[in-house]
């Protein structure tokens, strides 16, 4: 079974199979941001046997991260997240090639050049300005993008592709440049739910279980009210 025995409980899934596992093995994902959302995404991608994951983050671990950023512990405070996440990912599954890039988005071209080599981009950053830049780059390189986010008790996920990206949805506004969600209240499970949604969509798409990327999909859940919502913004 191509050394895929350990994935037997996954390949047995309807629409998945060994062919789906081969597709995952051949996939390359760029995961930008390994904070609360990224902490849920990375173990699921690594465990599932994605071929290559490029982890990008420019931040270091702080004590206020730990309630939700479960990739890290107290001993990691002050250390770079990208490198730690890379080590954790490699330890979780040696089949997966996890690479790290300790970079800021403003370092621009070097990072965006990576996009064209990727099957999918997952944006798990923490500001509108970063998200607009990432989505603009995905649009330029025409790769599918999953944007997963959380704030307060709310989890959200958008799928972008087929010419529809975040800049097509949101007007550029001046306040975006200075805005950052860092420091805002955030419920750990809300961050993880967004990450689980993102990993689920990535694995379904990359394995071929869901070959059509449902660009325009928006999902929302509020832990404080229990209200769930989803729609497709492309269909209007």
């Amino acid at each position: 079974m191509d050394g895929f025995d350990k994935y037997a409980r996954q390949t047995a899934l309807p629409d998945f199979g060994v062919e789906g596992q081969r597709r995952l093995k051949a996939s390359r994902v760029v995961l930008i941001g390994v904070g609360g959302v990224g902490s849920a995404v990375l173990p699921l991608l690594a465990g599932a046997g994605i071929g290559e994951v490029l982890v990008v983050d420019c931040d270091t671990v702080s004590s206020t991260n730990l309630h939700r950023q479960t990739l890290y512990g107290h001993g990691d405070i002050g250390k770079p997240k990208a490198e730690l996440a890379c080590i954790r990912g490699c330890l979780m599954n040696p089949d997966v090639n996890v690479r790290s890039l300790n970079a800021r988005l403003s370092s621009g071209d070097a990072l965006f050049d990576e996009f064209v080599k990727c099957s999918l981009c997952i944006d798990a950053t923490d500001s509108f300005s970063a998200r607009m830049a990432i989505s603009g780059a995905c649009k330029k390189t025409e790769i599918p993008q999953i944007m997963a986010s959380a704030q307060g008790y709310v989890s959200q996920m958008f799928l972008f592709g087929k010419g529809f990206y975040l800049p097509d949805l949101l007007a550029q506004d001046e306040s975006a440049a200075s805005e950052k969600s860092a420091g805002a209240p955030i419920f750990g499970p809300a961050a993880h739910l967004a990450g689980v949604w993102a990993a689920g969509q990535a694995l379904r798409f990359l394995s071929g279980a869901e070959p059509e990327f449902n660009a325009g999909l928006f999902r929302h859940f509020d832990f404080s009210t229990g209200r769930a919502f989803s729609c497709n913004l492309r269909n209007g």
Binding site: S149, G152, Q156, A194
Partner: peptide, 9 residues
């Protein structure tokens, strides 16, 4: 239905 878009992670 109105949902504010959030950007945190």
């Amino acid at each position: 239905e109105v949902m504010a878009i959030v950007a945190g992670g």
